[in-house]
């Protein structure tokens, strides 16, 4: 799989969760990548965790998060 395809797969997973109404609650980064916690409303209403491996996806998720913040500001 090309680097772009690897990123694109992760991007689609992110977009899908955001489309469903999840929002980013936490991003924890370590040697294995970025573990992103998505929640729907309050945490107990539904929580999904994605482990993002690609650099572009780790960039993308924060960009999306920043855009969301700006849109809601």
């Amino acid at each position: 799989m090309s680097a772009f395809e690897e990123f694109d797969k992760e991007r689609r997973e992110i977009d899908e969760l955001l489309f469903k109404g999840y929002h980013v609650a936490a991003i924890r980064e370590d040697l294995d990548g970025a573990k992103v916690t998505f929640v729907m409303g309050k945490p107990d209403k539904g929580q999904v965790t994605l482990l993002l491996l690609t650099a572009d996806a780790r960039k993308y998720i924060v960009t999306r998060y920043m855009e969301g913040k700006r849109a809601n500001a």
């Binding site: 991003i27 993308y60 924060v62």
Partner: peptide, 23 residues
Amino acid sequence: GEVPMTWNERQQEIARLNGSHSE
């Protein structure tokens, strides 16, 4: 097609999100 984002801005956003400095 993305808004500008520097490494420092990114880290600040993550730190704010997580409530503590991560990096």
